[in-house]
């Protein structure tokens, strides 16, 4: 009985949390936008986007390089090392770009968002905004949300581009694959609509989910040091799981059914 009761209580708590998250998001997004909020959003793009740039570029470069190295050793056995270009670029554009960017973003920017908003709550800054008749959803939540939505697809595109250049560096400059065939076979395989745009759509979905989780976890956190540390951990865990799960669903929808 007590086990069933616990299951029930947990379920109700989860559903209530989803409801609160939805209310928070709709409150943030449907509040009448002000011109002032544009500059707040630019500032947040700096915090979540620009400051994540280094880790994204370095990871993209190394992942591209490793894929070229691994791919080459496999493909060369079949004399198909010319297919290195499409292998590297398709993996990056369809999967690794959006997914790895989302995971890194959750760790780098998502956790910071949760901690920042959680601490704003703990230090009564959110309450104080409300008492100043300034809606914290509009002032604090909305700019961060839009910044996440803008930044992550941009970061994913940069990640893929850098990764493809990294693959070129290893595959062509180091292992001696023909530069012309690296690019031209890539060009004949990669399709703008199917590969690049689908990757961007994936990335937009991940941006929505990760930013939403991060902001909600901060906004809904228990304002103690323990509560914030738990919220930060949960942001990273939940968004990573959500990204990986959604990736499968999106891949099945986009590429699974011909």
């Amino acid at each position: 009985m007590s086990f069933l009761q616990q299951v029930g209580a947990n379920t109700i708590a989860r559903i209530a949390a989803v409801g609160r998250a939805g209310l928070m998001l709709s409150g943030a997004l449907f509040a009448a936008p002000k011109l002032k909020n544009v500059s707040l959003t630019v500032r947040q793009v700096y915090v979540v986007g620009v400051q994540s740039l280094l880790i994204i570029v370095v990871s993209g470069l190394f992942i591209g390089m490793v894929m070229a190295l691994q791919g080459y050793t496999i493909l060369v056995d079949y004399g198909a090392e010319g297919s290195l270009g499409p292998m590297v670029s398709l993996s990056l554009l369809r999967e690794l770009g959006p997914v790895v960017t989302a995971l890194l973003f959750a760790g780098r920017a998502g956790s910071a968002l949760t901690a920042e908003i959680g601490l704003m709550k703990a230090t009564e800054q959110l309450s104080s905004l409300e008492m100043m008749a300034v809606d914290p959803l509009r002032r604090v939540v909305a700019p961060r949300f839009w910044a996440g939505i803008i930044s992550m697809p941009s970061l994913a595109l940069i990640f893929s581009a850098v990764g493809i250049l990294g693959g070129h560096l290893v595959g062509v400059d180091w292992l001696g694959v023909d530069s012309g065939s690296y690019w031209s076979i890539m060009q004949s395989t990669v399709e703008w609509q199917k590969d690049v745009m689908n990757g961007v759509i994936k990335s937009l979905v991940f941006a929505l989910v990760v930013t939403w989780i991060a902001i909600f976890k901060g906004y809904d956190s228990i304002p103690t040091s323990e509560g914030i540390s738990k919220a930060t951990t949960e942001t990273v865990v939940f968004s990573s799981l959500a990204v990986l799960g959604l990736d499968f669903v999106l891949t099945a929808l986009m590429f699974g059914i011909e």
């Binding site: 009564e124 104080s128 409300e130 008749a133």
Partner: peptide
């Protein structure tokens, strides 16, 4: 929100941004 403009609150921590 209109009414809150007529009141203000000094929080224990100050709650400065």
């Amino acid at each position: 929100y209109q009414t809150r403009r007529r009141m203000s609150m000094l929080f224990q921590s100050g709650a400065l941004f």
